[in-house]
Design a protein around this nucleic acid. Structure first.
Lengths: 363, 363
DNA sequence: CTGAAAGCGCTTACAG
DNA sequence: CTGAAAGCGCTTACAG
């Protein structure tokens, strides 16, 4: 770089000694060498819904020559022509991508996504332009860069999925649900997970159990809340309204919410938190109130995110198979894109109770 | 999806009630509405090195109309025309992407890359097809999908960077060096890092210090080894040849290598390991030999990868600013791509000694 | 100052 | 069975 300008056009070939560059070989090059038209080559190289029929001898000769010349179709031309890009655009909830990739939930799902695209020889693109509203971003998603969209943690009230759907852009929703056309979705079984958590606490003898919610814009927050109330009802326990408190992904808010719980005249002896992050904030709140976990307070989280804090803290939690969710979802989306008959539109994954040291029998 | 086929072409608009899809607006649409030619619109919308000149009044009118119509240029068409895709392809060393993204070094660098592309409103693409040889993958990198390449942890002997360079494809090398044209690179100062590690051990009074290497195909393994020997020489210490042992990222190999060290007639009292992962294997080997760290053996790693194992183990190590390396490198590549005058081709980052509990004074 | 045209590489309907 | 042509949306030389 220090030795010459960057642009290809600004510099003649002679001025750079090391130039063994060759122009990429095009369909026309292959056609010329094979002595056939480009249509024939195109037809041979694609499984071909083209009307152009080619004899077996021509077919094999073209194939041979294309391989010999290391022909590689130009992705831009194909995309422009309206063909598949074999690329999926990944959209991260409301957040900027740079924030999302530091989130352990997203990160683990992401590993699954990569596994999924790799198996299918697809590609993934992350757009540097945050999408904000669906309306504003729609065109960016139809400009020939991607065949479909993977949406992780999109807020319930967002019009993104609906807009994509009505524009016939296939979408995978991770961590949510939708019965719209062109939408496939994967999620953990939130009801089953919340039931595991509540049953665990109930079996430990807790009756004063609180629910520390996650962000209200997440569907999972509501599903887990509903199960929380349902399980209490089933156990014949009447929990005060004050036991169902809003959480947040913002540390201050979550810690304050948990703090309020612990200052109630009759504080809970156990907290079911809507996710691990919030559960850890609850632990912090307990600590600052000089309460000992699990002696004075049992805490259960959700997710079992593979980060050191969770393991270090000894948090009992509900594990989601996050990487599997990402991988299976991605494969479902690709199957839909490829028109695989009978490919599922929805998969729900079983959670698992992971007992560590943040829960103990009620005193 | 359950209600209808996926493909746009297979289904008439009438059969789907919810279709509020509109064809993306093209340059021509804007031109028609503005009553000018497409060339004029193109010229206005791009800072325009085009020869087409447009009056100020036309310019502002076109701008207004384009915004009104939410015109979004088609990326595929631009790419085909030879323009910038504003997309960077990320290539992960020898590994499959799915393996690489589970690696904590790669993961942290990745977070920086996303930050970098986001700031510049660029995009990143990960190709599902593993690249293996540069020769085989070259065309895939010139098919209109990306303007440049980010290569993480490419083996020393790989021809990838050289091939890209001679084909005038700008590359960012992360964790390596190169003075080829079209190549920019970022890395930690390996010499400084190894010096920090060795000085720490020497100051603790260790004289029997071994080097447990990383994979030999990594340049860093060699640079750290060289510094290891240099620092011993400077301290007037003659280390036996058997103290410089090959490591590997494969657990069995690394553990065995470390084990051999510990079984020497005169075993080392300290080990400088070429990276954290290998340092943890050394710890494991020590444990299986009933040696206590740091009482019987001090261990220093390299990277300070943000994973729970490193912190849980109390490993003393050399921290690299991995996210920063990724972010700064990405911005350097983009600057080169955009022809920013005087943008640097090389940046080296200072490491930092993180003392935890795996090192202690020699007895 | 502005418009019409060529062409990037591909695929698919259309003629022979 | 095969070839020539149109056109996807854009940018950039080229004519007016």
């Amino acid at each position: 770089m220090t030795k010459g300008p960057i642009s290809t056009t600004e510099q003649s070939d002679e001025s750079l000694g090391l130039d063994d560059r060759v122009k990429p070989v095009s369909l026309r090059d292959v056609a010329a060498r094979a002595g056939v038209g480009v249509a024939a080559v195109s037809s041979v190289l694609n499984a071909a819904r083209s009307t152009t029929r080619v004899s077996e001898s021509t077919r094999s000769r073209v194939l041979e020559i294309a391989r010999e010349m290391r022909y590689q179709p130009n992705a831009a031309a194909r995309a422009l022509r309206g063909g598949a890009t074999k690329t999926l655009a990944v959209l991260f909830g409301t957040e900027k991508a740079s924030v999302a990739v530091t989130n352990s939930y997203v990160n683990t799902v992401w590993q699954g996504i990569i596994l999924g695209v790799e198996e299918a020889r697809y590609n993934v693109i992350i757009l540097g332009e945050p999408w904000r509203s669906a309306d504003r971003s729609l065109s960016a998603l139809r400009d020939g860069r991607a065949d479909g969209v993977i949406a992780i943690g999109v807020p319930m009230e967002s019009d993104l999925v609906a807009t994509l759907s009505s524009n016939r852009i296939p979408v995978l929703v991770i961590g949510g649900d939708s019965d719209l056309d062109f939408v496939v979705s994967v999620d953990v079984d939130n009801k089953a997970g919340a039931t595991l958590a509540m049953t665990h606490l109930l079996e430990l003898g807790h009756t004063r159990i609180a629910y520390l919610a996650g962000p209200e814009y997440q569907a999972s927050t509501w599903e887990r809340r509903e199960t929380y109330h349902g399980e209490l009802r089933r156990a014949g326990i009447a929990a005060p309204d004050a036991y169902d408190v809003p959480g947040s992904n913002r540390p201050e808010d979550a810690i304050e919410s948990a703090g309020r719980l612990l200052e109630l005249p009759e504080p809970p002896t156990a907290i079911f938190a809507a996710n691990d992050k919030i559960a850890l904030y609850a632990m912090q709140a307990a600590r600052s109130k000089r309460l000992e976990v699990p002696r004075d307070l049992s805490i259960v989280g959700f997710d079992d995110r593979p980060v050191r804090e969770v393991e270090l803290s000894g948090l009992t939690t509900i594990r989601q198979p996050l990487a599997e969710i990402g991988a299976v979802g991605t494969k479902m989306l690709i199957a839909k894109l490829q028109g695989v008959a009978g490919s599922p539109s929805r998969r729900v994954f079983e959670p698992q109770l992971i007992v560590r040291t943040s829960t103990a029998a009620a005193i």
